[in-house]
């Protein structure tokens, strides 16, 4: 069975009472989530003036991420689709306000009133799934990013820590963010480590400027453990796509498609990242018969 919860059940079902409690009482999880939230807050790059801000915590769960915001003196509004997770947040007497809400339906806030938003381990996992027949991941992504863009103050940032399932999924998410008007890109911390590697989408509301430049990831220059650097794997660096107007990369695909070698190489890359990839067999990348 997959270890990815989003492939098992919709979030409001997966995070039931038992799971919500288990999640929040694991000291390993609380520690990881606190670290991710600290980093996300740092990437929000709020002015350094000790002023409390009004922030959003999207997919706030039991309030582990929001607690970091409180500790840093900020006010926050957390929204989550799981009543069980929110109940645990209530029990823990978090300081933020809580809303039962599905980000895929769009966020219901007035325009330009929010100073920043974080989302820790929530966006990709669930937003890209179609859990119900009425769920169209594209419409949900569009509603989410469109409404997020509108409610943020100009120049404000949203930092979304994500575990994309694959490159296509990350591109899909980023694509919708850009279309909504965000500038920014991906910050990858510890890109060479499959364990500590962490990805953050750092999005800025408003036209690209100096403040929208994507900061560097942590541990980028460290010695890589296994990867051969020469592969020029662009995923192993901070990928900035703040320049939205660059021409589309020409795809180098021959008449015959990408070929077995290319597929094998990609599969190897995904394996190195720790993804579950089917074994290579004689069928790998074989052309399908055109029959329908």
């Amino acid at each position: 069975m997959s270890s990815r919860p989003e492939l098992q059940a919709p979030p409001e079902i997966f995070y039931n009472d038992a799971e919500a409690r288990k999640y929040t009482s694991s000291s390993r999880i609380t520690e990881i989530q606190a670290k991710l939230s600290e980093r996300a807050l740092e990437l929000l790059a709020l002015p350094n003036d000790d002023m409390p801000r009004l922030l959003l915590d999207i997919g706030c769960g039991s309030g582990l991420s929001g607690e970091t915001l409180s500790e840093n003196g900020h006010h926050w509004i957390g929204l989550d689709i799981s009543q069980s997770m929110l109940n645990v947040a209530l029990e823990r007497e978090v300081e933020g306000d809580l809303l039962l809400s599905d980000m895929g339906q769009g966020l219901g806030f007035r325009d330009g009133v929010i100073d920043g938003a974080i989302s820790i381990s929530a966006v990709q996992q669930w937003l890209c799934n179609a859990d119900k027949s009425c769920h169209n991941p594209r419409l949900r992504l569009k509603a989410f990013f469109g409404s997020l863009y509108r409610c943020l103050a100009r120049g404000a940032r949203a930092v979304l820590q994500v575990y994309p399932e694959n490159i296509a999924q990350r591109e899909l998410i980023l694509g919708f963010a850009m279309r909504a008007g965000f500038a920014g890109g991906v910050v990858v911390d510890f890109p060479h480590s499959s364990k500590s590697r962490k990805e953050y989408l750092v999005l800025t509301c408003g036209p690209p400027s100096i403040s929208t430049a994507v900061p560097n990831g942590k541990g980028e220059d460290e010695e890589s453990c296994s990867d051969d650097e020469s592969s020029g794997d662009e995923e192993n660096q901070t990928v900035s796509i703040s320049d939205r107007h660059r021409p589309r990369k020409k795809q180098k695909i021959g008449k015959k498609g990408r070929g077995r070698e290319w597929v094998l190489k990609k599969k190897e890359q995904m394996r190195r990242k720790g993804n579950v990839v089917p074994p290579d067999t004689k069928y790998t990348a074989r052309k399908r018969k055109d029959r329908f």
């Binding site: 809580l98 039962l100 339906q105 219901g108 009425c134 509603a143």
Partner: peptide, 14 residues
């Protein structure tokens, strides 16, 4: 309820 507004929309409201 318990201080938490339920802002979930019905299918036809999205």
């Amino acid at each position: 309820n318990k201080g938490i507004p339920n802002m979930l929309l019905h299918e036809d409201e999205v």
